[in-house]
C-alpha cells in the first residue's frame, strides 16, 4: 500500500535533514505504527506521503500512485486525521462534513452516521467553534473517514481524549481495519501502538531504527522474566527472575522446590522499554 525508498527531506535544503534515507513498506490491510519522540520526523514523513510536503529525495508510492507526480484521484482513496483539529469553526459540525464530502469524486458516508459513530450525534447543529478540544478532534477524525478511504493516515488520533472516548476511537480503528482499511498510525503512545499495530517502526532523529511486529520485538528485546511471590520463614517475598540467566534459573528452581509459592507469572517487557533499549532513547 505504501512503498518508501531512500526518502530524505531537508526543510531549508541546507543539508540538515528532518528525515534521512528512510525506507519502509506498509502492506495492504495492516495497521502500521510510526513511533518516535517529538521532533523525530514522523509528521514530516506523513506529510510527504500525503502530498502536503513536496517530495525532495527518494521514491514514494502511496496507494499505487507515485508521489513525485501526485494525481488528484489519489486523494479519493486516502483519508487523514490531523494532530491539530482543523475544521471551519463558523460552520456547524454537519455543515463541515456536508461541505467536505462534496470535495471527493467517490461515494461518501452520511454526515449523521459519522457523527453518531464518534459520539457527536446530537451535536450536529452546533458550530464547530463552540466545540471543546476533544469534540473538535473527534470531528476531524470523523471527517477523515468520509470518503471511505482504503488508506487511512492517523496522526495522534487519541491524544487529548478522555479514556472512554479514546477506547471508542480505538474500536473504530480496529473495525475499519477489519474491513480491509490499511492504517498508517503516527503516535508516541506506546500502549495504543501495542494494542493496534501489526507492525511498528521506531524513528529517532529522522532515522528508522527498527521495524517489526510488537510481538517479535518483545521476543527479541524483552528479557523473559518470571515474577514469583512466595512465603519463606513466615514472610511474603516478591522477586523477578530471568529465565535465561543461570543464577536466576537456579534460584527459581530452589524456590519452587523449597517454598510455598503464592503466585507466579511471566512478565513481558513493554513496547516503551523495548523502544528505549532498541534506540537508546526515551520517547519524550
Amino acid at each position: 500500500m505504501i512503498k518508501v525508498n531512500g526518502l530524505s527531506h531537508s526543510y531549508n535544503k541546507d543539508g540538515k535533514y528532518a528525515v534521512k534515507d528512510v525506507s519502509f513498506e506498509v502492506k495492504e490491510g495492516e495497521v502500521f505504527g510510526f513511533l518516535g519522540p517529538s521532533g523525530a520526523g514522523k509528521s514530516t514523513t506523513q506529510n510527504i506521503l500525503t502530498g502536503l510536503l513536496k517530495l525532495q529525495e527518494g521514491e514514494v508510492t502511496v496507494a499505487g500512485y507515485d508521489v513525485k507526480h501526485i494525481k488528484n484521484e489519489m486523494f479519493n482513496r486516502i483519508g487523514m486525521s490531523f494532530e491539530q483539529s482543523n475544521v471551519y469553526s463558523k460552520m456547524t459540525a454537519k455543515e463541515n462534513l456536508d461541505f467536505y464530502r462534496k470535495l471527493f469524486d467517490v461515494e461518501t458516508k452520511e454526515p449523521q452516521f459519522l457523527l453518531d459513530l464518534v459520539g457527536l450525534g446530537d451535536k450536529g447543529n452546533i458550530k464547530a467553534g463552540e466545540f471543546s478540544k476533544g469534540m473538535k478532534h473527534r470531528l476531524t477524525f470523523a471527517r477523515s473517514m468520509i470518503n471511505n478511504p482504503t488508506l487511512w493516515f492517523l496522526d495522534e488520533p487519541t491524544t487529548g481524549l478522555d479514556p472512554s472516548i479514546a477506547a471508542d476511537i480505538k474500536d473504530i480503528i480496529k473495525a475499519e481495519n477489519k474491513k480491509g482499511v490499511t492504517v498508517f498510525l503516527t503516535t508516541h503512545n506506546m500502549y495504543i501502538a501495542d494494542e493496534l499495530c501489526d507492525r511498528v517502526a521506531f524513528i529517532v532523529d529522522g532515522d528508522i531504527k527498527l521495524i517489526d511486529s510488537p510481538k517479535n520485538l518483545k521476543m527479541q528485546y524483552g528479557d523473559k522474566l518470571v515474577e514469583v511471590e512466595y512465603i519463606k520463614d513466615g514472610e511474603t517475598i516478591n522477586e523477578s527472575l530471568s529465565t535465561i540467566e543461570e543464577n536466576d534459573k537456579k534460584k527459581l528452581q530452589d524456590i519452587i522446590g523449597q517454598s510455598d509459592i503464592q503466585t507466579m507469572h511471566t512478565k513481558e517487557a513493554t513496547l516503551e522499554e523495548i523502544f528505549i533499549k532498541g534506540t537508546g532513547r526515551g520517547l519524550i
Binding site: 486523494f75 486516502i78 482543523n86 467536505y100
Partner: peptide
C-alpha cells in the same frame, strides 16, 4: 490559523 488549507489539500479538490 484554523489549518483549513491543509484539510483542503488532502481532498480530491486542489
Amino acid at each position: 490559523q484554523q489549518g483549513i488549507i491543509k484539510a483542503y489539500a488532502i481532498t480530491a479538490s486542489r
